[in-house]
Design a protein around this nucleic acid. Structure first.
Lengths: 123, 123
DNA sequence: CTAACTTGTAACAGGAAACGTTACAAGTTA
DNA sequence: TAACTTGTAACGTTTCCTGTTACAAGTTAG
């Protein structure tokens, strides 16, 4: 088995233990987010940007479909003064909480993750 | 309809537009978290602590069942050096990201939320 | 004490969403 | 041209969430 084959969806799927289509779907998300480069018919995938330029937030946003971490009761009772205004009050805090979470993710790059992996492997 | 009846699960359920059992289940979570006081057979529910002593994090933890915001691939391939160590690397960052989110929630009390509601109602 | 309330909870049923899989079109390379 | 690959739509299954029903347990007014 060639080393270049370690990038194919089939090989990765076998290593992870899932179907190859699952890998291709995730790869598609990463490609649309501009993180990896894949081409129909060409085996394998390679990075679109160097590892230090990819943060965990980039990956998180690429994979996560829902933009909002918190979801709020969709149909408030118009006759209820609480229900009419609770959205506005909560959305502010929830937005800031999500922003705090995402800021932490943006502080760690894939390069640091890979470095930690290599350090753990040599132990 | 008496004003005291506005605390019963039946009344709240009608106002929100859900089944009364749903309200009782949520109330049970809040009671087990020490936020509200309810008693079998006694109509209504009242706060266990004053509003300024209840943060959004208290409510979040009471209602949210899963302790971890991020879940990680459960069965790593032991022959894959990445899969063997990726958990440890990611758990640290994920934990800190969740902690940042929860810290923001802990900075806002229910008293402030109620105050914002009252301000919006008088507009 | 009894009747009519309530809350607490287990059990069941329904629907929705997530997931893996299959199948095939489209592209590339030897 | 043949044998690969990726991209994606479509399908079936399974799991999970949710609402509902049903009933036990407790309280209070009369």
């Amino acid at each position: 088995m060639n080393e270049q084959d370690e990038n194919t969806s089939e090989w990765m799927a076998g290593s992870i233990g899932v179907n190859a289509v699952v890998v291709r779907n995730v790869t598609g998300l990463l490609r649309r987010a501009g993180l990896v480069l894949t081409q129909q018919g060409v085996p394998g995938a390679r990075l679109a940007r160097p590892l230090p330029d990819i943060t965990l937030l980039d990956v998180y946003r690429a994979v996560e479909d829902s933009l909002d971490l918190f979801t709020i009761h969709p149909r408030p009772n118009p006759e209820c003064s609480v229900g009419a205004n609770i959205q506005v009050s909560l959305e502010g805090v929830f937005g800031e909480a999500q922003q705090a979470m995402e800021h932490r993710l943006s502080q760690t790059t894939m390069a640091e993750i890979v470095r930690q992996l290599q350090a753990a492997a040599t132990c």
